[in-house]
Simulated assay, not measured.
Amino acid sequence: MPDDELLADFADLVLNVGRLIRAHIPAATELVTLNETERQVMRLIDLHPGCSPSDIAARGRLQRTNVSAALRSLEAKEMITRATSGRQVSVTPTRLAETNLLALRAAWGTELAHTLDADRETLRRCTELLRGLEQRLIEPPD
Rank of each mutant, 00 (worst) to 15 (best):
R124F: 15
R39I: 05
A69L: 11
V32N: 02
T122C: 10
L74T: 06
L6W: 07
L101T: 12
T122M: 12
G86P: 10
R59V: 04
H24Q: 13
D4I: 15
P2R: 09
V14R: 09
R72C: 00
I45A: 09
K77N: 04
L116M: 12
V17D: 14
R59Q: 09
I25P: 07
E38W: 00
L104Q: 08
D46R: 03
A27W: 09
G18M: 06
R72K: 13
T37A: 03
L137Q: 12
L13F: 11
A97W: 05
G86F: 04
T127M: 04
R22E: 11
R95P: 02
L116C: 12
R124M: 10
V91D: 06
L71P: 00
R59G: 02
G50H: 01
P53T: 04
L112C: 10
T81N: 05
A8N: 13
V32F: 01
V91A: 07
V89K: 11
L62D: 03
T33F: 06
T99P: 04
L112M: 10
L112A: 07
P93G: 08
E128W: 08
T29E: 14
A118F: 11
R39S: 10
E38I: 04
A118I: 07
H48N: 04
C126I: 14
L96C: 01
G18I: 03
A107D: 02
V32K: 03
S52Q: 01
A106R: 15
R87Q: 14
L112Q: 06
D46W: 04
E139D: 11
E30I: 11
R120M: 12
L130R: 15
N35H: 07
A57R: 01
L34C: 13
T81H: 06
R136N: 09
D46E: 08
H114E: 14
G50K: 00
A97L: 08
L101N: 10
T92R: 11
P93D: 04
P49F: 03
S52D: 00
D119T: 13
C126P: 10
R82H: 05
V41D: 06
I45Y: 04
I25Y: 09
A58T: 07
G18A: 12
D55I: 05
A8E: 11
L137H: 07
D4Q: 12
R72L: 02
L15I: 12
V32I: 03
N66F: 05
E30P: 10
T81A: 00
R136E: 14
R95D: 14
P49G: 02
L96F: 00
R82V: 13
A69V: 13
A8C: 02
L123T: 09
G50A: 03
V67P: 01
V67A: 03
L44A: 00
N66D: 10
G86E: 05
I56D: 00
T122V: 15
C126Q: 12
E78Y: 00
N16D: 14
L112I: 08
L34A: 07
A107W: 06
